[in-house]
Amino acid sequence: MIPAAFDYARPDTLDEAVRTLHDGGEDAKVLAGGQSLIPILRLRLAFPELLVDLGRIPELRGVREDPATGSLVIGAMTTHHDVIHDPLVRRHAGLLAAATETVADPAVRHRGTLGGSLSHADPAGDLPAVLLALDGEMVAVGPRGRRTLPAREFFLDYLRTALAEDEVLVEIRVPRTDGWGFHYEKFSRVAQGWAVVGVAALVRRDDGRVAEARIGLTNMGTTPLRASATEAALAGAGAGPDAVAHAAEAAAEGTRPASDLSATPAYRAHLARVLTRRAVLAAAGTGRR
């Protein structure tokens, strides 16, 4: 279908974008890569009166290192393709690069952005759970200034984040995970499919044991979740297949997965346990792959 009519603004600066968004009120919406928004407009599931295109604001793109903390600072408009190929991301946040490679297909990854994926907050989207596992932070700018939100406070509900209507997500801050093993295990039905369930695992090992594990779950509720019970069971445990399998039994604890055409809640819980075991073993380097 053809989208309903809307007005279009393409500001050159962040200030102007925030002002335009604020003046547009609740009928104005940010346009990033458009890879989620344009399909929604075409299906006429949303009727914004104004789209504010962030595509020509250079400062929102690219990856740099924060000299004070060493964290990576990723511009919200950095495309999936650029995230995958960025040397800083590959070196210091390998989990993000690996998970982004599983998002959609090359053409969609040329346009879709990290900021757009996080702001869209689709429970089946791969990157929210990854940012949660990485303990990332979102930096938002609005008419009332700038604020930083930990990933844990950013995702509120199905397609809903802590961003106000006139706030722009400007950058994503990711602490380095040098020395951590990582893996993103995604289960989908077709090649370019969304995750039925996905598991993002980070493991820091100390001799033969797991010193610390962080596990993010995709599509196990209306928001991304951490598999806290499994994380606790893994802390200090052995990194071998039996210990990991045992800990992974708790992966679905506290989750409330949805029922849809792809899976029942019980099947999703089963997947969470199986995929968590695989992801942790791969991240710990003790799996078969």
């Binding site: 890879q35 399909p39 295109d53 297909d105 053409a107 040329h110 346009r111």
Partner: peptide
């Protein structure tokens, strides 16, 4: 298709493949 899935509409925009049903003409300005 109507869902940005099939790729039949793929063209190159500024050196990158894109699904042209999922890009606004004004974005390609």
């Amino acid at each position: 298709c109507d869902t940005s899935n099939c790729g039949a509409c793929t063209v190159e925009l500024d050196g990158d493949s894109v699904k042209s049903c999922n890009v606004l003409a004004v974005q390609a300005d």
